[in-house]
Design a protein around this nucleic acid. Structure first.
Length: 452
DNA sequence: TCTGGGGTCCTAGGACCC
DNA sequence: TCTGGGGTCCTAGGACCC
């Protein structure tokens, strides 16, 4: 918590719906609902006109239609939303270099990093007011709500207090007074499950929460969650505004209007999703070691399976093969297998454990292995390395190791090892001499293993 | 025919290593 | 002969957020 109200939170009002109304004048002043329009769709954003009929985010589109049949129901145009978001973030960066986007329509701005004469309430209020007008100007009329406070938590609470098109400042020193009468659900991280647990413990307001000892919160909610709630209930929040966070996973999933029951169709879906995920990985210059699938059964139970490769991949074939293998593993399972054939409503593929490794880093640190070291490496090393994959190259031979090299074509591949000393003992790693190849060393079926 | 899609973070248990 | 504890990695699931 800072001495000044120098954390700004900006939230675009009914963002997706507002973009639609901006771009299509006939929708202005009318209820607009953006979201899935299929049989299993949900509402992403409802315009304020639609909210008057009780339409809310995350509500099923079916219910939204029954509440407000005359609304315009639209699927999202994410290209337009991304463009508007880009304009907003650029406007925010004109004020301060420290801008942390939370999503397309929300961001924190650290005014302490801005070029201002001081951080007094009047000064930052003026900045915030001009910023809202600048955002409207940059986006051709989108309105936003802004909160200013001494921490991220309070700034976000504040931006919610006067929606839409509002500006609320929490003067330093008044934070706890503002929070105490509020419901615990204003605290980020308190969703339905946590709120219910707290309610059973007699806690419904922040003031109630403040009276619960730390040990009790930890035993109720776990170490991390209990600890953070104990702090936030007292308005204690020192989280910095952090621009540019690295993505940790990439995934694609889809819910189908009617359940899938043919495993071959599911495999085809996973293959296509794997290609989408791999394409997005490549576009962002990233690759990841853990491939996961997600399966939601007809009764809404959700199961996931994952497998971790010894080196990162962004290869659509590798991701697809592993995804299908994970599905096959599920289908063979005694419990899930039966249900799988009973119908699957959602399928998804993800890659996590992202590392946007740079080839130079790998090969520059490489040293020629000692002869006896090479002899002493019967097991596949637990490698953390890989290299970009070039189609059109094949592999006939791998020295010093067991694994698969993905490719198609002809050639000879040499796997190089190095052993480095670390405080934890020797660390083995490997790489390929050809930087355009990739070695993969997970468990491979014997009859499928070219090196067995 | 209730219940999206894209993420993040946490927990808990088991394997494995020192 | 019996008994260890800590750290890291991996997996599965759950809660939460926009």
């Amino acid at each position: 918590m800072r001495a000044h109200a120098s954390v700004l939170h900006l939230d675009l009002d009914a963002f997706f719906a507002s973009v639609e109304q901006r771009d299509k004048p006939s929708l202005r002043g009318k209820p607009v609902v953006v979201g899935g329009v299929g049989g299993r769709g949900v509402v992403a954003t409802a315009s304020y006109e639609a909210r008057r009929y009780g339409v809310r985010s995350a509500m099923s589109t079916r219910e939204a239609r029954s509440r407000c049949p005359h609304a315009a129901f639209l699927t999202g145009r994410f290209g337009a939303y991304r463009e508007a978001s880009r304009q907003v973030m650029a406007a925010l960066r004109e004020v301060s270099p420290l801008v942390e986007p939370l999503s397309l329509d929300e961001a924190f701005v650290d005014l302490a990093a801005a070029d201002l004469p001081d951080l007094e309430v009047d000064t930052v209020t003026g900045v915030a007011d001009r910023l809202r007008h600048r955002v409207a100007e940059a986006t051709d009329g989108l309105t936003s709500s802004v909160g200013l406070a001494s921490s991220k938590f309070l700034a976000k609470v504040a931006s919610d207090l006067d929606k839409p098109d509002g500006l609320v400042v929490v003067p330093p020193g008044t934070e706890t007074e503002l929070l105490r009468p509020m419901a615990v659900t204003v605290i980020p991280g308190v969703g339905p499950a946590t709120a219910e647990r707290l309610r059973r413990a007699g806690v419904t307001t922040v003031a109630d929460l403040e009276r619960v000892p730390l040990e009790e919160l930890v035993s109720l909610l776990g170490k991390a969650h209990g600890g953070s709630l104990h702090l936030l209930a007292r308005a204690r929040d020192d989280r910095p505004v952090v621009p540019e966070r690295e993505a940790k996973s990439v995934s694609v999933e889809a819910t189908y209007d009617s359940d899938l029951s043919d495993v071959r169709v599911m495999e085809a879906v996973l293959t296509r999703q794997a290609a989408d995920v791999a394409r997005r990985l490549r576009e962002s210059g990233a690759s990841g070691r853990t491939v996961s699938i997600k399966v939601r059964l007809h009764d809404f139970t959700t199961v996931s399976r994952s497998s971790t490769l010894s080196s990162p991949t962004d290869d659509p074939g590798v991701v697809a093969r592993l995804a299908r293998a994970l599905l096959a593993e599920l289908a063979a399972g005694p419990d899930v297998g039966v249900q799988l054939r009973g119908g699957v409503r959602l399928l998804g593929v993800g890659v996590s454990g992202l590392a946007d490794w740079v080839q130079e880093d790998l090969f520059s640190s490489l040293e020629e292995p000692e002869d006896d070291e090479a002899e002493d490496l019967p097991e596949p090393p637990r490698a953390r390395q890989g290299s970009a994959f070039a189609p059109g190259v094949d592999v006939e031979h791998v020295e010093h190791g067991r694994g698969w090299v993905w490719g198609a074509g002809r050639g000879v591949v040499t796997v190089r090892f190095e052993t480095r000393e670390s405080p934890a003992g020797p660390v083995r790693s490997f790489s390929l001499e050809d930087p355009d190849l990739r070695l993969w060393t997970p468990e491979v079926p014997e009859d499928d293993d070219p090196l067995a």
